[in-house]
Structures are given as structure tokens and as C-alpha cells.
Amino acid sequence: MEELHQQQRDAVLWLKLNRPQALNALTASLVDALTRAIENAQRDSGVRVIVLTGEGRAFCAGADLKDPARGSPEAGADFVKAIGALTEVIEASAKPVIAAINGIAVAGGLELVLACDLVIAAESARLGDAHSNYALFPGAGATVRLPRKVGLNNAKHLMFTGDMRPASAWMALGLVSEVVADDGFIDAVSALAAKLAAKSPLVLARMKQALNDALDQPAPIALRYERALSNLHHFSADRVEGLSAFKEKRAPKFQGK
């Protein structure tokens, strides 16, 4: 069975983890397939938005602890390193990546979510860190990204306890952008992805770059960087098209240039 199901709908690439019998736990081959799929999407001008989701009742239950690739401490460390590299590929993607949380998301699954740009969750979904429950230490970004998303004290409580919480609780913490009834979940994700795909891919890429970089910069430096990007963007074809469409009262046709 194919571990990663890929489907492109118009300008949206859907990547579905497809190991439902194992709660979509990550194997070395699945991590490799997902990494390659996102890297390939960066080179495909026909893809403007990426949606990451799971098959069955889980989004992703983290690393598959039964995977033969984790047979030794050295192999296990290499495997976690590969998951960490995957999260960096997601975070660095010039194209928006939406985490569509259809079900359980824990440990490495939560770390995938933390690397995504927007998070939309089904009402029944539950998320947690869970590493501490098995004396495991996260290696794919949880200690760095979680406090940036939900605050230091909340991150400590979530990581120390290993508790899972409903999607609504994570929305209150700021990680989840929207919680949707299960029966309308796919339609809601599709509508959000289509909305983003209709925008200028150039301006979204530049916004993502500036927003991500600003977190680690003093405000004066981040503001100078924003102004530099803004000045550069004045010479883009998409900006010209956007203004023309506004004046002519029509839908813009962006080329990403």
C-alpha cells in the first residue's frame, strides 16, 4: 500500500499520510516520500498551496516505534534527524502549507503540525506532545516551535504532562486557526486552500519569509527587512496585476512574478 497518497486539485496539492492501521505513524520511507513530495512541489509552478492530512482516525501518531529503521540508538537518532529535516523543508516552503488535522496528532505528528503555516482541525481531533509519556526527547522542533506558538508556560505544561487536548483547546492557545465540524471538515479545508491559491504566490511567499524571520530579529532590523521587501515588491508584475484588477473590478490573474 502506498504510504503517501498525493492528489492535485487545481493548484492545491493534497498529501495524505496513508498508514491508517498504524495511525499514520512515520516510517523512514514515509518521511522520505513526504520530504521529496514537498521539495518537488516547490519546483512545480502549477502547485500554489500544499495540504497535509491523514487517512483514517489519525493525522499522525509520530514516529513508528516498531519501524526496523529504529533498530539501534544510532539508527533512531538518524531517523529523528530525518523527521527534523522534513519539518525544516515544510517551514522553508515558499508555498503555504496547511495542516488539516483530521484526527489524532501527537509527538512527531505534532511537530509536523508546528512546522505548517496554518492549522485547521476537525472538531473530534485531539493533539498532544506525548514524548514524556515514554521517556522520549523530541528532536523535530517541539522545544523550539511550540513555545513560539503557544507561549513558554503552556509549552512546558503540554510537554511535561504529555496530555492530549481537543482541537478547541489548541485553538484557544493559538496553534489551531479554525475548528470545523467533522462532516464539513474537507469542504472547509478545500475552501481555505482555494482562497490561498487564488492569491499572488509571490506576495504570500514574501509574507511568509518576513513573518518567519521577524520572530528571531530585533524589531528595528525586522522593520528594515520588511521595508526592503516592500520596495522590491513594488516592481513585481503581480502587484501591477492586483492594482489593475482592483481598478477594473475583476478577479486578478496572478503569475507569481
Rank of each mutant, 00 (worst) to 15 (best):
E226Q: 14
V150I: 12
V47Q: 13
K195V: 02
K195W: 01
A107V: 00
R126E: 15
Q217A: 15
S45D: 15
G54K: 08
L30K: 02
R43E: 10
E39K: 05
A140T: 07
A115F: 10
L118K: 08
L192E: 11
L243T: 10
S132G: 10
V119G: 08
D78T: 06
L158M: 09
G56K: 03
A33T: 00
A61M: 10
A107F: 12
L146V: 10
K195M: 03
V119Q: 10
P252M: 10
L15K: 04
S236V: 07
L202S: 12
Q21G: 03
Q8T: 04
F160L: 14
A198P: 03
L110S: 07
A92T: 11
D78G: 13
V189D: 06
R148D: 15
L17N: 03
D67V: 09
A245M: 03
A58C: 10
K247R: 13
A142R: 11
D67Q: 12
L110M: 14
A181E: 11
P220D: 14
L4N: 00
P252D: 12
H5F: 12
N40D: 14
G139S: 06
P220Q: 13
Y134H: 06
I101E: 05
N153T: 00
L17Y: 02
E248Y: 07
G71H: 04
R57Q: 11
A181T: 00
K156A: 11
R70F: 11
V97P: 01
A142E: 09
A105F: 14
Y225A: 15
V31H: 03
M207C: 05
V240R: 15
T143G: 02
A142L: 15
V31E: 00
I98M: 05
E91Y: 10
D216L: 05
F79T: 06
P20Q: 01
Y225T: 13
V97F: 01
A125I: 00
A37S: 14
M171K: 13
H131G: 04
P138H: 07
N231P: 01
R70Q: 13
A251W: 01
D44M: 11
L13I: 06
K81M: 15
S93D: 04
R165F: 12
S45F: 08
A61L: 03
A130I: 05
A63W: 08
V179M: 13
